[in-house]
Computed example of a mutant assay.
Amino acid sequence: MSLLVKICGLSTRETLDVALGAGADMVGFVFFPPSPRHLSLETARELGKQAKGRATKVALTVDADDATLSNIVETLQPDLLQLHGKETIARLRDVKARFGLPVMKVIAVETSADLAALPGFADVADRILFDARAPKGATRPGGLGAVFDWQLLSKLDLKLPYMVSGGLNPDNVAEAIRVTRAGGVDVSSGVERSPGHKDPEMILKFIRAARATEELMVR
């Protein structure tokens, strides 16, 4: 299976077009007001139309209620819901049943103990995304540029597709893929010139670096 590359936190037509043109498999849109990448529904509608049929549209939410999710689903028409908060296994099951969309659950990682809940979530989720655990007092759970110890995933035995994120950038994505053997990589702050402002050239460099590593691992 080929490596999936996700560019998350896109917020302008220009940077979305760069990501799509460079061959991103997934494009992520953030719906979480504390984030500098938060989108209005109006902007999401336009970007969703731009991405339709060109990449998997991912809606990132954090402990969102049903009303919020309903508005997002109706407006963006995402292909995948990314639940990035403290959602329980029961909540995942409910969201899947209610909205009829596949769900990617984010697991925050700092130590091996953080992987204890993985089997339960893997029974319900369609995909897992491993991200660095946010420090205490952080206003948001991700997009902070923090890296976790990838060796924690080096012996992971998970049948479910999984991706890795957390502090990835064009310079370290190759090592992340090599160590974790993840089927996908997800970047946000690592391709930004400042929080919430994507850099087109960094997006291109990240996707090229990920694809080059994929080719080497296939050989």
Rank of each mutant, 00 (worst) to 15 (best):
K96G: 11
D79A: 06
P33I: 02
G142N: 02
R93A: 14
R45C: 10
A108E: 09
T56L: 14
P102I: 06
R91H: 10
L129S: 01
K136W: 09
K105G: 08
L69P: 12
A108K: 07
V106S: 11
A67L: 04
L153G: 13
L80D: 13
R37Y: 00
L81N: 11
T139V: 07
E46L: 13
A64F: 15
L69W: 13
A97E: 10
R91P: 01
V103H: 10
T139A: 14
S40W: 00
V62S: 05
A55S: 13
V62D: 01
A64Y: 13
L81F: 11
A138R: 07
P119M: 03
A117V: 15
A122C: 04
L47M: 03
V73W: 03
Q151V: 05
K86W: 02
L152P: 02
L153M: 13
D149V: 05
P135E: 12
H84K: 13
V95G: 03
E110W: 05
G100W: 04
D94Y: 08
A59T: 08
A97D: 13
V106N: 05
L69I: 12
V124M: 02
L92C: 14
L92N: 14
L80G: 08
A138V: 05
D123A: 15
A90L: 12
R37K: 02
G120C: 13
S40E: 04
A146D: 11
A116Y: 11
A59E: 10
A97H: 07
S70L: 06
D63P: 03
S112Y: 01
W150C: 13
R93G: 01
R93T: 14
L115N: 10
T111Q: 13
D131N: 06
A113E: 15
L69R: 14
L144Y: 08
K105T: 03
A64E: 07
R127P: 00
A138Y: 00
V106W: 08
L101Q: 06
G143D: 05
K49F: 08
A146G: 05
A51W: 09
W150T: 07
S112V: 12
T68G: 10
D149P: 12
L144P: 00
V58C: 09
T61E: 02
G145S: 06
R91L: 01
L60A: 08
T43K: 09
A117H: 07
R37G: 00
L81D: 15
L41M: 03
G48H: 09
A67T: 12
D123S: 15
K49R: 11
